[in-house]
Every structure is written in C-alpha cells, then in structure tokens.
Simulated assay, not measured.
Amino acid sequence: MKNLFLSAALVLGLAASAQTATTTQTTTTTPAPASVQVAPVSNQDKEYAKVTQSEIAPEVLKQAVAKYKGYQLVEALKAEDGSDYKLVLTKDGKDIAAFYKANGEFIKEVAA
C-alpha cells in the first residue's frame, strides 16, 4: 500500500511539474553593418514654393513643353534653393508631377 501511495505521489508530482514548465523562445537579430551608406534621393526633403509660369526657367519650360504636349500646367513650384522645379500637369483628368533641374534636365515623373 505504501508503494501505491508513493507511486501516486510521484506521478502527481511529475504531472504538476510538467504543467508548470515553461518554454522560452529566443530570437536572434543580425545587427546592421556599421558602415551602411545611403545615397541621397533627389527631391527628398526639399521645400517648394509656388511660382508663376513666367518665373519658370526658360530651359525648363522648353523641355516640359516638348515632352508633355497637350498637357496643361496646373501648378509650378520651385525648390527654395533654386536647384529644381516641380511642375504639376494635367491631361484627360490625369495629373502628374514632373521634376526638372534648373538647367532643364528631366529628373523624374510621378503621379500627382
């Protein structure tokens, strides 16, 4: 009878410890290399101010008119540092923003 009680106590003890056992999950992350270099993105973090069509550099107007025939100028903006222009154009209900450097060089086009 002693063996029966001892066996029952042992089984209950093992069952109780099995239920209270916790599992820990560890995750490892790989640190980023210390010498990561990020190339500057054109037109990121630039402040633009509205300008009239007559204030747009002639080189920019010439290139924009040639590239975007049939489009209408909605808004013209110039970077505060004077380095580039943002022209918001529309055609058939579709608006785009065209970016040009002050010397007339096309930078990019994005949906407006």
Rank of each mutant, 00 (worst) to 15 (best):
A57G: 06
A98E: 01
K69R: 15
V41W: 05
I107C: 01
T52N: 13
T27V: 10
N3I: 09
E105K: 04
T26Y: 15
V38E: 00
Q25V: 13
S7I: 14
V38L: 02
T29E: 12
V38D: 00
L12R: 06
A64E: 05
Y71G: 04
A15I: 09
A57C: 04
Q25M: 11
T23S: 13
K101V: 02
K69N: 12
L10A: 14
P58W: 08
L73H: 06
A32Q: 09
G104Q: 03
A76V: 01
A34R: 05
K62T: 10
V60Q: 03
A16I: 08
Y68V: 02
K78D: 02
L73N: 07
Q44W: 06
T24M: 09
V36E: 00
V88W: 03
E109H: 00
D81G: 09
T26D: 11
D45A: 13
T30D: 03
D84N: 12
L73D: 05
V36W: 01
S17D: 09
A112L: 02
V74M: 12
E80W: 04
E55S: 10
E80D: 12
K67A: 06
S7D: 11
K62W: 07
P58E: 06
D45N: 14
A8K: 08
T30K: 07
V65P: 08
A76L: 01
D45T: 14
G70A: 05
A97S: 13
E75P: 05
T29I: 07
T29P: 02
G82S: 06
S54P: 03
Y68S: 03
T27S: 15
Q19V: 10
G104E: 03
A79D: 07
L73R: 06
L12F: 15
T24C: 05
A8H: 07
E55P: 02
K2G: 14
S35D: 12
S17A: 10
A21M: 11
V88G: 03
G82I: 03
S42D: 01
A64L: 03
Y71C: 03
E80K: 15
A8N: 11
T29F: 12
A66M: 08
N43R: 02
Q63E: 14
K46V: 07
G82C: 04
L6T: 11
A76S: 13
T27P: 04
V11R: 02
K86D: 01
Y71N: 04
Q53C: 04
